[in-house]
């Protein structure tokens, strides 16, 4: 089995329990969306999981249509359930962050949080950043986040691959792949991509970057 399929299978397995622990949107995402001034925009939650951030997009002023994309069918089902319970509208799509099934320049606002670090190779991570640049309109904005070595749980100072256990109710554990970024590496990978890096910050052990889409002809 290839490693990207393995990540998908892991999340299919833990989907229901994982989603139940992901109730609230992140304040960093709320702040990013509060700064947006858009009209009739298309929003994308890339790696939407249970759609907690897709819900924020769908409920943001000026966003007319929201797409939630995830590799895991199990997680998409939890997103559908959340949308049904809370009455927001999201178009769900099963897809790979490194090979997006979305047209060039089709997205105005995107949230790509806590997902990039699950892609198992640097090539796949860079491909996914280039894909985000391709689908964003040139003046579109995205918030990208990943776990970093600055997180309390890590002693390392350089980026590394690891697995982090997920414990299901009943005690069974499932390993999840992570690439933990060091901060310089995060900045370097964003700079190496077709995205335009506008600003970045460290918050709660995560690196956050606000980026813009590629100028025409760059991507």
């Amino acid at each position: 089995m290839n490693r990207r399929r393995a990540v998908r299978d892991t999340y299919d397995r833990i989907a229901a329990h994982f989603a139940s622990t992901r109730e609230y949107a992140w304040p960093e995402v709320e702040a990013f969306l509060a700064d947006r001034d858009v009209e009739r925009a298309v929003g994308l939650d890339l790696g939407c999981g249970n759609c907690r951030h897709a819900q924020l997009l769908a409920e943001s002023a000026g966003i007319e249509r929201t797409i939630g994309l995830d590799v895991s069918r199990g997680l998409l089902e939890t997103g559908r359930e959340r949308a049904r319970e809370r009455g927001f509208d999201v178009a769900l799509v099963q897809g790979d962050a490194a090979a997006l099934p979305l047209a060039d320049d089709s997205i105005d606002v995107a949230v790509y949080v806590a997902t990039l670090h699950h892609l198992p190779t640097r090539a796949a991570r860079l491909a996914s950043l280039d894909e985000l640049a391709r689908v964003l309109v040139p003046d579109g904005r995205a918030l990208v986040s990943a776990w970093s070595t600055a997180h309390d749980r890590f002693d390392e100072t350089e980026g590394f691959d690891t697995t982090v256990e997920w414990t299901l109710p009943g005690g069974e554990t499932v390993d999840r792949f992570y690439h933990i970024y060091d901060i310089a590496e995060f900045e370097r990978d964003l700079a190496a991509s077709d995205l335009e890096l506008l600003e970045w910050e460290l918050s709660s052990g995560n690196c956050y970057a606000t980026v813009a889409g590629a100028e025409p002809g760059e991507a």
């Binding site: 290839n2 990207r4 998908r8 590799v71 069918r73 799509v93 099963q94 897809g95 790979d96 099934p101």
Partner: peptide, 16 residues
Amino acid sequence: RYPIEDGIPNLLPPDM
């Protein structure tokens, strides 16, 4: 060819 499964399009690349 990409299937629409119970209302959700599965647009994963074929190898996934």
